[in-house]
Design a protein around this nucleic acid. Structure first.
Length: 261
DNA sequence: AATCAGACCAACCGCTATGCC
DNA sequence: TGGCATAGCGGTTGGTCTGAT
């Protein structure tokens, strides 16, 4: 069989330099970009006088050389924000970095992996609303699949749920703004108290603000997308939207905002 | 002073998304 | 519509630094 000749593999090309960038290389790349701008990373190294791949040049520029980059000394505020954003967005380092002026995704990723991951761990993982955190029980009386999902109580156990059940609806849980949902049968005989108030602390409120600020670009899509992939149908979604019962103003606003779009 | 282990971080690699032809 | 080139992202690697023994 005669195939196409393989494209030259630059990563194994001995003429391509790898490893730490020298000050001279930095200077060449910076000077070139200042003069000609960024037009094509792949074609840039040669005219810039660099024996690097375009990819390497891009990375060096993006992570180190470009203007307004801040190195080191991540502040407590930045650290807190990284933790919260990671909890909200997951390992979306670019998205997180976009909210920390002067910081790069690589730097934040490194910082997380080397310092924060162990400290924060998974225990405190904030669970953004997804479609598999809660199992809504069907109506005993008429077999309806219209549950009343309600705001949480601290003691409400997080219900096990498999993905794909039509009885699953989005929720938040421990460490979230509202600790978790209680679930109420239509006949209101649930063992879960759903009349307990949802107290929102200052910290939770702050988180909520961050969350709301982020939802347009990340959360809403995940939320709706995951819901729609959970096996639920549109009518069920509408039904639950209508039938969710809220007992706290701020939580209500928050959740309504999520559901609203 | 030498050695070792762990922390840190720059850079690489592989993959996906996007745009263009 | 498919293929290719490029950009961008996230996981991983490997070199360097630092502190403990």
């Amino acid at each position: 069989m005669v195939g196409r000749p393989l494209r030259p593999n630059k990563s194994s090309d001995p003429t391509v330099k790898k490893g730490t960038w020298s000050a001279e290389e930095d200077q060449k790349l910076t000077a070139y970009i200042r003069r000609y701008g960024i037009w094509n990373w792949a074609h840039m190294p040669n005219p810039a006088g660099l024996a690097r791949t375009g990819k390497s040049c891009r990375l060096r520029w993006m992570n180190y050389l470009r203007p307004n980059i801040r190195h080191g000394n991540i502040t407590k505020e930045e650290e807190d924000l990284i933790i919260k954003l990671q909890q909200l967005l997951g390992n979306k380092w670019a998205a997180i970095a976009a909210r920390l002026p002067g910081r790069t995704d690589n730097e934040i990723k490194n910082y997380w992996n080397t310092r924060l991951k162990k400290r924060v761990g998974y225990k405190n993982k904030l669970q953004i609303p997804i479609a598999c955190d809660i199992k809504v029980k069907p109506n005993h009386n008429n077999g309806s699949s219209h549950p009343y999902a309600c705001l949480p109580t601290i003691d409400t156990p997080k219900l096990e749920a498999g993905i794909g059940s039509q009885y699953e609806i989005p929720t938040m849980s421990e460490n979230s703004f509202c600790t978790s949902y209680g679930v109420q049968y239509d006949d209101k005989t649930s063992e879960n108290s759903w009349y307990s108030p949802c107290s929102v602390t200052e910290e939770e409120e702050r988180l909520r603000e961050q969350f709301l600020a982020l939802r347009d670009i990340e959360i809403e899509e995940n939320f709706c997308g995951m819901y729609m992939h959970s096996g639920a149908t549109d009518p069920a979604l509408v039904c639950m939207q209508q039938e969710l019962v809220y007992h706290s103003g701020s939580c209500q606003d928050f959740i309504m905002d999520l559901w609203g779009k």
